[in-house]
Simulated scan of single mutants.
Amino acid sequence: MISPCSPPLEPPIPPARTPASQTIVSPPSLPPNLPNLTLPSPPSSLQAPIPPPPPLPPLPAAMGVAPPLVFGLEKSQLLKEAFEKAGPVPRSRDDVKRLLKLHKDRFRSDLQWILFCADLPSLIQEGPQCGLVALWMAGALLAPHRNISLEGLVQMAVERGYSAQGEMFSVADMGKLAQEALGCHAELLCGGLGGPNRHRVLQHLVTGHPLLIPYDEDFNHEPCQRKGHKAHWAVSAGVLLGVQGVPCLGYVEDLELPGLFHPMPGAANQPPSLPEEGSSGAIYLLSKQGKSWHYQLWDYNQVRDSNLQLTDFSPMRASDGRAYVVPTGGVRAGLCGQFLLLRPQESSH
């Protein structure tokens, strides 16, 4: 099921070529006699091989939390050190409670809050692969037994002509890839997260299904507005709703944070009344993206506005020496105001 603005997301025939509807954005030719910008070699006293660090101790079985998967970990000592300091991947509920305590001034005290969330694995990207990293994380909810690797997703995207090196500038192509690789149902919506799409997005997240959305990424990974120059992808697998009153049926108040409620597992839940569209600061998307293994809470309207202004291909990307696959019509045609609702194939709602 898709919006009228887009053709059906049918699984493609897998040709190993670039579709005619897309363009390879190649790096410009470099002028001759450029200075050598290679960093100088370290002094000989520092060139002795450094022994690898000892393996990380296994996590206690009682925690039930897997460590983050870091793409390129074996190549980077910096990443290894950050990994060792970070510890296990936080669960979504624990990370939300941390954020609520840390930034309590952001959240309206006149509301009660209901958290709908699902746990996602973490994968730190290397290079322009944020969309495929987000899809890989969503796959943990959609197809947990398929064991799809990031490398497999990149290879498939390149073979289908959707990508040159893992980048994804087309929401429609991402939907086709999701259906083929994960065997899930992908619904492409355009026109942004507001208006008639708003209710569908919130119901989708309350049900526990993931949302894939492109946006402009700020320095702290939150949504911003840079006309597409910082285009990035995130996956949302939950929502924090600010409501005037929590329904009596199927919810329990958090023991640590009064005013925060969770749906009771296995119980019938009375749907909450969704905040009105003009109500600011009452809806936060629980999101993850490929540059941090922590969850983030993003104001719904902030994400909506960022997604709606993706119009231009970054000049820095155009001159960074890499090739990119961009659909006809550019970033505006491929990303602006578009996103994907993903759910298991057997789920019709």
Rank of each mutant, 00 (worst) to 15 (best):
S6G: 01
P8H: 03
E10N: 13
E10A: 14
I13L: 13
T18D: 11
P19T: 12
I24D: 05
P27I: 08
N33F: 13
P35E: 07
L39Q: 03
P43M: 05
I50N: 10
P55E: 14
L69V: 13
V70M: 02
F71V: 03
G72M: 12
G72I: 07
E74C: 08
Q77N: 15
Q77H: 14
P88E: 05
P88H: 07
V96Q: 03
L99N: 10
D110C: 01
W113A: 00
L115V: 08
F116Q: 02
C117V: 00
C117L: 00
Q125D: 05
G127W: 09
G131F: 01
V133W: 01
W136P: 06
A140V: 02
A143L: 04
I148Y: 01
S149A: 14
G152P: 01
V154Q: 10
M156C: 13
A157I: 10
G161C: 11
K176F: 01
E180V: 10
E187N: 13
E187L: 13
L188R: 10
L189W: 03
G194D: 08
R198K: 03
H199K: 05
R200W: 06
R200K: 11
R200S: 03
Q203H: 11
H209D: 13
P210G: 04
L212D: 08
D216I: 07
H221S: 13
E222N: 09
P223W: 08
C224L: 04
C224P: 06
R226E: 12
R226C: 14
K227W: 08
K230G: 07
K230L: 10
W233S: 13
G238P: 01
Q244D: 14
L249G: 11
L249I: 10
G250L: 03
V252D: 10
V252P: 00
F261S: 10
Q270P: 02
P271W: 06
P271C: 02
P272Y: 00
G281A: 09
A282E: 02
K291S: 09
K291A: 06
S292M: 03
N307R: 05
F313L: 07
P315H: 10
R322H: 15
R322I: 12
T328C: 10
V331M: 04
L335Y: 13
G337W: 00
F339S: 07
L341G: 04
L341Q: 03
S347L: 15
S347G: 06
